[in-house]
Design a protein around this nucleic acid. Structure first.
Ligand SMILES: [Zn+2]
Ligand SMILES: [Zn+2]
Ligand SMILES: [Zn+2]
Ligand SMILES: [Zn+2]
Lengths: 173, 173
DNA sequence: CACACGATGTTATGATGTTGCAAACGGAGC
DNA sequence: GCTCCGTTTGCAACATCATAACATCGTGTG
């Protein structure tokens, strides 16, 4: 099962979940002739450990604990590499990064971001991507890349609000 | 016609286009009991003048020419006000701002951003917004706000590339 | 006028991201 | 092993983006 899709099962074997992601990353990089160096692997691991959108400087702080010399370029280079290889995605509206559960296949992801608990889930719905590309082309626009980020309430947090949609729409202002 | 939708007609009366936008903004604010102060009006005018995504500090530099005391908070406060009233939109992946052609009605916009000339067009396709909300809800997610930004080539720039899609797809990597 | 409230001025600081150059590393070929 | 060369990393400085905190001003209301 793809560990990044959908919101987390209430309890999952997270240690295993991170290990699998790292294993997959190694496979992907080896097949592509890319070097998943120790630094890059560590940054990827930090991103997966959190299972939350992680900001660059938060990652930097954590990385410094195992690597005192780490500096901003250290982290941004690693992030660039991981993004280029589809191992993580950047959430533009948060300036943050999340692991991708399916780095083997290029895809346009759509992200569901909870305003309450900040959890993020990735949909990679080809129908959505196709529709956007088609709508764009109706405006004479040739689409190459998509950023789709949806803010709202995840299942758990919607539940906590009692499913009270009037209250929620008030909160939404 | 909505001046912000679609890419610009080859030549349009831009002076008129800006005037109309400011006029509409005044109407909207008056009806809502919001104060479109001189500073806010000037920032809105600068955004519309450019007809391009404008970054905060670019706007600040321009604003300083008519208002020496302007500082970062000056511009960000004006931008916050304009966004809150739907007069401009923020393009997250560019950290930039564009005018909205339809501030009277709340809407989820989808933005087409040209990688070549940096022009931006806004689609406000309710079908897209509805589909995203529906897809999200299928994942148990209650959607409140959407960010949709599509990168690619605008009609003019696609044309300049000779409509050569093989070359473009190569460039797209 | 007195007051309240929103808007602006001002300084400083925090947060995010990049450039440029030198040194170290690592695989390919000899 | 050794050289060569492209990639990766170290490091310092810089560039860009955004907010905090608090004082002051302006405007409308009673
Ligand atoms: Zn996990
Ligand atoms: Zn949540
Ligand atoms: Zn709009
Ligand atoms: Zn263009």
């Amino acid at each position: 099962m793809d560990p990044a899709s959908g919101f987390l099962p209430a309890k999952h074997n997270h240690r295993r979940c991170v290990e699998d992601a790292l294993k997959t990353a190694e496979d992907v990089c080896r097949r592509r002739g890319q070097r998943l160096t120790e630094q890059r692997r560590q940054v990827l691991e930090l991103v997966w450990q959190a299972h939350m959108p992680m900001r660059a400087y938060d990652l930097l702080d954590k990385l410094k604990k195992v690597h005192r010399a780490a500096a901003p370029p250290t982290i941004y280079r690693a992030l660039d590499f991981l993004i280029a290889n589809g191992l993580i995605h950047r959430i533009e509206s948060l300036n943050a990064f999340v692991g991708c559960g399916d780095p083997e296949h290029a895809h346009a992801g759509q992200f569901l971001v909870c305003q309450d608990c900040h959890a993020v889930a990735e949909m990679a719905d080809p129908g959505v991507a196709t529709l956007l590309k088609k709508k764009a082309s109706q405006h004479g626009f040739f689409a190459l890349r998509q950023t789709v980020e949806i803010f709202g309430l995840c299942p758990a947090c919607a539940e906590n609000h009692g499913g009270d949609h009037t209250a929620m729409s008030a909160a939404a202002k």
